[in-house]
Design a protein around this nucleic acid. Structure first.
Lengths: 283, 283
DNA sequence: TGATAAGATGAGTCAAACTCATCTATTTTT
DNA sequence: AAAAATAGATGAGTTTGACTCATCTTATCA
């Protein structure tokens, strides 16, 4: 290249700030360096870029043209760089509130310890999935999802607070919280299959539903009944002795957690994130 | 700047060419330098830009994004630089065909000798005046033009070929070529004033008109008559003894040559061009 | 009129950028 | 199947151009 890019950067800054001194401050250089760069530029291009009016400078017509182009060009490059730097130092994962609150957030610090240079953001709700460098973890129908995208197939069981006595299914009414997804395309929690597998029926059972598993789990933890929910969400609570199981038989479901187009996340950080997710969801 | 612009240039080229080797050739470097630059970039941004597949490389998703931005950005800057380089090494002047043919073109070599680093283009006709770095020299009405824009006020006289005998105004008919501008806004050549100043009238004079002074002058040089035209156009021909005057009295006119917004041409080269024009038109 | 401030200029310094030598992994040739 | 060729990675050594310092010029301000 016949003119140096650093000289152009110096020029761009000087043109924008209207002063060699300010440009020097911006670029952490001396005004002398800016002056050298610009006279170098001017002699190589054989064009005056600034009028020198002793204590101040003004762009010539040619200078103004070049300033526009360099400003636009460098801004374009700089903003892409900024995006790269972001991509290099933050990883972002979006999921359902239940998974976030019960599984991801409690495990967040572990990720930070293994990857101190990265900061992790966990978001729930109406996340714009088109955002760059955001990995969505969704709940879906394992029969409809590409098998390679699946992180964890769900099974379901009944859980209760640590203080609860095991339910007596035959005599008194048992309150069970379960979930009815707002999204009707999702398979329902396999309550019937679970009852069959455990030799039970719906008599003596009072069903209450929420649209998120989190709420039923919270009710169960508060001792207000039992919850029929996914084993993924409860594994941490079981380990922390906040919930218990009662020797019942868990049943598989068609539900699964998956990352759409999992294979397409090809960056270093996305890989670390996927490893962590796999770790966290599969015990 | 935390990442060097040269590294970005190396990356841009490698991304575009799809090979470190080709990028190295393009930038007159060794493939090693490209490799260093790119791994430097990758470690600073903490993002992989290429997949390394042993003997070839492919852009990662992040790499592709950066490549687009750097390509666009550098292209933008590069094209402005190209324009600057042009502005630095060619000067362009547009004028009427008469002035170009009789005055500017004959003096062109003198400019080249004084400014060997510049190449001069002289264009006539329907030049797009909005083109960059083109200086138009126009014929106008000195009463309607900003005085500071005027290069030369026109005066008129009668000229004939060197071989011609002086016209005998009283006896035989004298053929005089003169000009009727296509542009009716221009003042007419001051023939009546000239006749009055020289004590003549139109009897015994056969007037023939063209729409450009050049043609009348060519007729006169061919010995087909005399020409009533501007002294600016003929000064070179007089000096070369291709035309002669006959002791008549020249008369001033309202016509002038001028450069619109002369003061706005502020580049080094435009200044050299204006000096030359002034020199050439004013003897 | 002296003080300050912004930039120009020239010489010297230092680190970033480049090359060279060597190595690895893959593809092509014989 | 071995040998040659090719593309890139890696580390150490070298060079050059980008930067600073000292000094000078010119204009503005008190």
């Amino acid at each position: 290249m016949q003119v140096s890019l650093q000289a152009l950067k110096a020029f761009e800054s000087a043109a924008r700030r209207g002063s060699f001194k300010l440009a020097a401050e911006e670029l952490s250089l001396t005004p002398t360096a800016i002056s050298h760069h610009i006279s170098n530029l001017e002699s190589r291009l054989n064009v005056d870029l600034f009028y020198r009016q002793a204590r101040r400078i003004t762009l010539t017509e040619a200078g103004a043209k070049l300033a526009k182009a360099t400003s636009d060009g460098f801004r374009m490059i700089e903003s892409a760089l900024e995006e790269m730097r972001m991509a290099g130092k933050v990883v972002r994962v979006a999921s359902t509130s239940s998974l976030a609150a019960l599984v991801l957030i409690p495990a967040q610090h572990e990720f930070s310890q293994n990857h101190p240079e990265l900061s992790m953001e966990i978001t729930t709700g109406e996340a714009l999935e088109s955002q760059s460098y955001l990995m969505p973890v969704r709940l879906g129908d394992s029969r409809a999802v590409a098998p390679s995208d699946i992180i964890r197939a769900e099974s379901f069981d009944v859980f209760g607070a640590h203080s609860m006595k095991p339910p007596v299914w035959s005599t008194e009414p048992v309150t069970i919280f379960t979930t009815k997804w707002k999204n009707r395309a999702l398979p329902e929690p396999p309550l019937d299959a679970w009852l069959a597998a455990n030799g039970l029926d719906t008599s003596n059972i009072v069903l209450k539903t929420f649209d998120q598993e989190l709420f039923g789990i919270q009710q169960a933890m508060a001792g207000n009944g039992f919850v029929f929910c996914s084993t993924t969400l409860t594994q941490g609570l079981l380990k922390a002795d906040l919930l218990q199981q009662f020797g019942t038989q868990p049943v598989a479901s068609d539900l699964c957690y998956y990352v759409p187009n999992k294979h397409s996340y090809d960056t270093r950080n996305a890989h670390a994130l996927l490893c962590w997710l796999d770790n966290v969801l599969n015990q």
